[in-house]
Nucleic acid binder design. Structure first.
Lengths: 328, 328
DNA sequence: TTGTATGCGTTATCAA
DNA sequence: TTGATAACGCATACAA
């Protein structure tokens, strides 16, 4: 329609410098006249890149990831990339399956929040990466050359624990996931650090780590509250644990914010809307997604850029669930 | 490595019937020896399909969609397809942008839950589809040849309203989204039907439709509760509205489950864990995702299959928030 | 500055 | 049953 060669059309559309104004005009007119759009699959094959990122999320039902996704998608869109999201539903086999899928689909890079268990295959992929990776809030495998975004869970948790200590609590219980999981380990570290900083002995018997599932929280809290000298404060080290903690506290007849202090992690709908509202160690999940995506794209666009690690802050938000005078 | 031609390798890997056992064996041995994997981009270009579905979600922060996604992904995976998720964050322009992205990326079909506002461009795409579409719980544009999965919101809402009427409530308020939005319209219809079925006049002045945003719920409930003869029961026609309703009820000094009955829509964490737990009109979101994906793939795999519409049931779950004797 | 020709990694057609 | 070859739609090296 423009009566020019195929290659001239290509040059115009890829902004090649050597095109005359006349040519550009003719081509663009024809393009808009025909409603022509380049075939992305063919472009990918030829260019050797897909302008697509893979984002593997361990558990999309977890509300905190909605913001991470937004941050990553916004960043990717701004820089001309699409994001292919998949959700492995806490299943390590699915982690691996989707990872292979990403590689076969030739995404240009991968963002990774593995499910709780993690997967050996993932560790291996990240250690011998054929494309850039960025890991969000999980341990970087040894020898890995992936980038990482961490959250400083220890600092926020130390702040939270210090807050409870300052309110007079001494029997403070911590529920958290397996120490194999970085955030869980960090939170336990912060918890202990607060006791030490206050010159107090760490109540190891009140630290219950194992799983982030609500049922684990419920079961452990039921046990904790049924002994002679039960804790006067509980820290839920994960937003899914919180549901189980609340259930157990209710069943044990304890009133959150009155005779039981409660602090949770991550500011979700439930913590804001519960009565009383629940104190949390909060973090900026949107920023986390943005940073992760930027780290990834920096490496994709320039293979010389070394992998980087960024740690984002967390901070305590005090609310009614813990903002009252404790036992002493 | 197998010393056979390119085309023989292709035939073996695509299970072409005309391959000798000897050939198959030699090829497969070489394949596993080399760790060879077919290049999906090249396959897509040649075959004219990508084995990928697009799933456009208006608001991924809404927890109900997590289950829809799971259902759709499970179904797609079972049938050999990948799902490309995107999230338009309630922004109709993003709806359109992502839709174009899907088309340019040559997905084989699209699942669609538009954001609240919807988009003219989407309507047009669905009306002149170049690929199969399925719409989830939204109105099908006139002349559209897309499939659809609906929820029977009217039935569930009628059940909920009848429940409140049977508990003695007469001043029952309904908060819901704009009538332009199918679920909102259906819910209002069910609400009215319950009054009519009971031989009562529909309290039109207590029906507040406009938006599904929490702030809208908060604002309207503050108004509703500040008049002389305030409602004794409130129905939140959307899980995001619920947050605002709870805030306003609390500020107005009303006690949910004691002097204010409350029913919400969709069974999310908050409704189960709130004290008292909140009655809801529930539905099976996982099933919704599965059905949508199946409808789509049926049409993708056989262009002769006509578009279909499926309506899924909803049902009332009575909990403490409404399970008490009302005013009369 | 523009056009011609080649190749990206497959699959499908055709001939052997 | 197998192999040679063209084509999918584009980007680019090279020639003009």
């Amino acid at each position: 329609m423009a009566r020019v060669s195929l290659s001239s059309v290509s040059r115009v559309l890829t902004n090649h410098p050597d095109v005359s104004a006349r040519m550009r005009e003719r081509v663009l007119k024809a393009v808009s006249g025909l409603g022509y759009e380049p075939h992305l699959i063919a472009q990918s094959l030829r260019r050797g890149r897909t302008d697509t990122l893979g984002f593997l999320i361990g558990d999309i039902a977890n509300p905190v990831f909605a913001d991470v996704i937004r941050g990553a998608e916004d960043c990717a869109r701004d820089r001309g990339y699409a994001v292919m999201l998949t959700n492995s539903e806490g299943d390590a086999r699915l982690d691996a399956e989707y990872l292979r899928l990403f590689l076969r689909r030739k995404v240009d890079g991968i963002m990774l929040v593995t499910s709780e268990a993690g997967s050996a295959e993932i560790i291996q992929s990240v250690s011998h990466p054929s494309i850039p990776y960025v890991i969000l809030d999980r341990d970087l495998p040894k020898g890995s050359t992936a980038s990482a975004v961490y959250c400083d869970h220890a600092v926020g948790m130390q702040e939270a624990t210090a807050h409870l200590l300052s309110r007079g609590h001494r029997n403070i219980a911590l529920l958290s996931g397996s120490p194999a999981l970085r955030p869980a380990r960090e939170r336990a570290a912060g918890f202990r650090a607060a006791f030490r900083a206050a010159g107090l002995k760490v109540p190891e018997h009140l630290i219950r780590t194992g799983s982030l599932a609500p049922d684990f929280g419920k079961q452990e809290v039921m046990r904790l509250l049924s002994v002679a000298d039960p804790p006067s404060a509980i820290v839920a080290g994960g937003n899914r644990l919180l549901g189980g903690v609340l259930e157990a506290a209710h069943q044990a007849g304890r009133a959150v914010g009155r005779n039981l202090a409660l602090v949770s992690c991550d500011d979700v709908d439930l913590t804001r809307l519960y009565r009383p509202p629940i104190s949390v160690v909060a973090r900026d999940m949107y920023e986390m997604g943005r940073v992760a995506c930027n780290l990834l794209l920096d490496r994709i666009n320039d293979a010389q850029v070394p992998p980087r690690s960024v740690t984002l802050p967390t901070h305590l938000v005090v609310r009614g669930s813990s903002d009252f005078a404790g036992p002493r």
